[in-house]
Amino acid sequence: MTMTTGAAIGEHEIAAFRQLHSQVADAVETALIGKRDIVDLVLVAMFAGGHVLLEDVPGTGKTTLARAVASALGGQSRRVQFTPDLLPSDVTGTSVYDPRSGEVRFRPGPVFANVVLADEINRAAAKTQSALLEVMEERTVTVDGVAHPVGEPFLVVGTQNPIDLDGTYRLPEAQLDRFMLRTSIGYPAQSHELDVLRPGSGAGRVAFVPTVTSPQIVVQYGKLLSTLHVAEPILRYVAEIGAATREAARLRLGASTRGLRALVRCGQVYAAAQGRHFVVPSDIQRLAGPVLAHRLVLTREAVLTGVSGTEVLEDAVSTVPVPRPEP
């Protein structure tokens, strides 16, 4: 694959990415049947260089999704089961003494993979959560003053159970803000669930997921798509959405600047996946919920009335005038 750098993205490059995105999504869907919209969102985060928070009940395919994505891109996947007694070194790695050489060597932890499934992340103590937060943001693990970079691409898929909250530690706003987007897989449609239940079918088996690309190509496309054109009216539209959330009466905390930047970044990847070399307002509207809703903090009164952050965000977005196409 040949890519131009430092120049506008060409039509052939957009077409090539759209085809690659479709191939990766098709491959993942051989394991996670009937969840194309969720797969597309996870791939948007991957190509945008971000991380995903899946808020779902057990048994809906979160582990399958993470492993299928890793298989499709030809990378490594690791799973970490978060528990209250999990230590930061269990996630990032630690220094160990090698008696054969007499040297202290760094033993990498499970974060040194392309796709890391942080299962039930809210069951770990704050110190362990902070260790993961650091590597998510910095893309390095520092042990004994030495920085060890993780591989690229680096996608953390964090999960938490929204129902069983016994023995959990609420994710602080600072850590929620590190996840580029939040979504949920949900239960499959009955026809797709029958395919999974049918004896002898390959549905839901990661072993059947073909490798259709490589980590290097994913990284190259991620850098290329960061230059995709975003018109000034679209940037103002995003900024006005952010301002609307900060002025919303039912919110104590509106969208952060990091969240708005993530919305623009996801919009670039999403537009290219649709075959366009520019972002349109409908891209921002489609992605606003997954990218911004989990970053909002409701007032106590709003929580008591059962309002969700997604509902408040939708109301805020509806008050912002949609930019018209330039003549």
Rank of each mutant, 00 (worst) to 15 (best):
D283N: 09
T159W: 13
L251P: 10
F82W: 07
D166S: 13
C266F: 08
E137C: 03
V52C: 12
L176F: 07
Q160I: 07
V297A: 13
D90V: 00
L225E: 02
H21C: 10
T319V: 11
L73S: 06
S318Y: 01
G306S: 09
L228V: 11
Q81P: 07
F278V: 13
A15S: 14
L260F: 08
Y187R: 12
T211Y: 05
A243M: 11
F106Q: 12
R79M: 14
R236P: 02
I14A: 00
V69I: 15
T168D: 01
T30M: 13
S201H: 03
E314D: 14
Q19T: 15
A125S: 12
T63D: 01
V291G: 02
G242C: 09
V91G: 01
G202W: 12
K223R: 15
S101C: 04
V39I: 14
G34T: 10
P215R: 12
L65C: 08
G74Q: 03
A7I: 02
E13V: 08
V264A: 15
A66Y: 06
R139K: 14
L225V: 10
R252F: 11
G61I: 02
G242Y: 01
L155P: 06
L263Q: 03
S184H: 12
T142F: 06
E232F: 00
K62T: 01
D166V: 11
P188W: 02
K223L: 09
S77P: 04
P188V: 05
L197R: 15
D98C: 02
G109F: 04
A125H: 09
S214G: 05
V317D: 08
A31H: 00
S89N: 06
E311V: 14
P215H: 05
P110K: 00
I185P: 00
T94N: 12
M180R: 08
E193I: 09
S318F: 03
V218P: 02
F112H: 08
V212I: 07
G49Y: 05
V69D: 07
F17H: 07
V143R: 13
V230L: 08
H51I: 13
V206E: 11
L53I: 01
V230H: 08
A25R: 14
L43P: 07
E134D: 10
R105D: 14
F179S: 01
A207L: 10
V96N: 07
P210T: 03
A118Y: 09
A66N: 03
Y237G: 03
P325H: 05
P99I: 02
V157I: 15
I33S: 06
S318M: 06
A293L: 06
T211A: 07
G102E: 07
T305K: 15
P290A: 12
D56T: 01
T310L: 11
Q81C: 08
V57N: 09
T60A: 13
T227C: 01
S71N: 14
